[in-house]
């Protein structure tokens, strides 16, 4: 990295940082899961893309203060499982992500309309759209 004006030590630190970022970006494989039940502090899931050796269902802990936002029984969601569950069998670091689809997707500031996030949200709308 001499062309960037970095020393060997700085280059190694930069490479380690990049490796850390890349490894976090392509970390674990997500689940496609159907929500079975929703409680204030936990969500029970059926895993639709379960590997043969992996779990076919899971109980995931959620923050009781914020709750499982935007999630309802029967819904298909994306789940990033994070660390394996503890002795109680509850996954404590999982992230539940509802798929953004349908007519209820918000577009504050209109950024998605301007970046052409679907025809109905204003591609080519010009001034006064959305």
């Amino acid at each position: 990295m001499a062309w960037l004006g970095l020393s060997n030590r700085q280059s190694k630190r930069l490479a380690a940082l990049a490796l850390c970022c890349v490894s976090s970006v392509w970390a674990d494989e997500p689940w496609l899961a159907r929500v079975q039940s929703v409680e204030p502090n936990r969500v029970t899931l059926a895993i639709e893309n379960a590997a043969e050796s992996g779990p076919h269902s899971a109980v995931v802990a959620v923050d009781p203060q914020s709750g499982p936002s935007g999630i309802a029984p029967g819904q298909l969601i994306q789940v990033w499982p994070g660390q394996p569950p503890g002795p109680d069998g509850i996954w404590n670091q999982a992230r539940l992500v509802p798929f953004e689809r349908g007519p209820g997707v918000t577009d504050r500031t209109g950024v998605r309309a301007r970046i052409m996030f679907g025809a109905q949200r204003g591609f080519g709308g010009g001034r006064g759209g959305r």
Partner: peptide, 28 residues
């Protein structure tokens, strides 16, 4: 009269990063 057709694809790279690419055509 504006007719628009658009195709988009979303990919989740990680729990923290997702991208969406959109192709669109409009005729006014």
């Amino acid at each position: 009269q504006r007719s628009t057709i658009a195709l988009d694809a979303t990919h989740a790279w990680s729990p923290t990063l997702s991208t969406r690419i959109t192709l669109a055509h409009a005729r006014n």
